[in-house]
């Protein structure tokens, strides 16, 4: 009896792919096509009057002073969130990995924040840091630190970065921990015998062997900080004060849903779409090469 790994039926592969394709078409290609169409027209919110304006929406978006500012805000915000969330995750993972007793308990406790929805997390941070009703916010002011994220753009930025990073630490922690535990003990023991101290062992052995995990987390965290932090910003600052915490994604929402500028909002979506494609290509082409599997 011969075993063959190919199907005789010509239809079956398509049938098996169909659900995934249907979902991709319905939830990705179709809306993306709509966004591209919407980005070249000018329309009133009710869709009563439509006029083709080609690239005027893009010109307005890119020509305005606020898009570039929003891009800078996004880069600062995302960079800080990724740095804080990944460093904290790694630090906690290394600490738990060394812990012989109660590691399970720590792991469980450290996983909990991941289960907290972004809007709920933001409310918790609000109750801590609100300058008038927050526990810490009041005390900061009491000791003479002028903390007011409602009016001070820098304070607002710090707050949304902390809140966004906090929700992500758990996720990074658990992946780093799994990565650490899959590093063979024999390699580490060999290094110890050769006389490497713990710091050297970490940088020369653990960190390079963790690189697939780190790379994976970097990709996931970039996506998170760019696209999944809407809830935190919406609940805490609504993009303010001024436009201090208005990231690109938040601006798409504000312009489309609040300001009902559908064309401008769609143009921004298309720009983001292109940026994501470029970023993903870059990431896999250049960074992945340096990763040891």
């Amino acid at each position: 009896m011969t075993r063959r790994a190919i199907f005789d039926n010509k239809l079956l592969p398509y049938l098996l792919l169909a659900p995934q394709l249907a979902i991709t078409i319905a939830f990705f290609f179709w809306p993306a096509g709509q966004a591209i169409y919407q980005s070249v027209i000018r329309q009133d919110p009710f869709g009563l009057l439509t006029r083709l304006v080609w690239l005027e929406n893009f010109r307005n978006v890119l020509g305005g002073p606020f898009y570039l500012q929003s891009l800078r805000t996004t880069l600062l915000f995302s960079g800080a969130v990724i740095l804080v969330a990944m460093t904290a995750g790694l630090l906690l993972a290394v600490t738990v990995d060394r812990q012989a007793r109660g590691a399970g308990v720590y792991t469980m406790l450290l996983m909990w924040p991941y289960a907290v929805a972004p809007a709920v997390a933001a409310s918790l941070w609000l109750f801590i840091f609100h300058p008038a009703i927050g526990i810490l916010g009041r005390n900061l002011r009491a000791v003479g630190i002028h903390w007011d994220y409602l009016l001070d753009g820098r304070d607002a930025m710090i707050l949304v970065i902390l809140a966004a990073a906090w929700s992500r630490v758990s996720y990074n922690f658990i992946f780093f921990l799994a990565g650490l535990q899959s590093i063979p003990r024999s390699v580490l023991e060999a290094a110890s015998i050769d006389g490497a101290d713990s710091r050297r062992r970490f940088w020369k052995i653990v960190f390079p062997l963790l690189s697939p995990t780190t790379f994976f987390l970097l990709v996931v965290n970039v996506t998170y900080s760019f696209f999944d932090t809407f809830g935190v910003i919406h609940s805490l600052t609504k993009g303010g004060p001024g436009k201090a915490t208005e990231t690109l994604i938040y601006k798409v929402y504000v312009d489309g849903v609040v300001n009902l500028d559908l064309g401008g909002s769609a143009a921004q979506s298309v720009i983001l779409l292109l940026a994501v494609i470029a970023l993903t290509a870059l990431q896999f082409r250049y960074i992945e090469r340096r990763v040891h599997y």
């Binding site: 009016l151 001070d152 753009g153 303010g240 004060p241 001024g242 609040v258 300001n259």
Partner: peptide, 16 residues
């Protein structure tokens, strides 16, 4: 609604 936010943004910058 958009104009309201614009005025609030500029006002906040003046307050700062």
């Amino acid at each position: 609604p958009e104009i309201r936010v614009i005025i609030e943004e500029e006002m906040e910058k003046a307050f700062q």
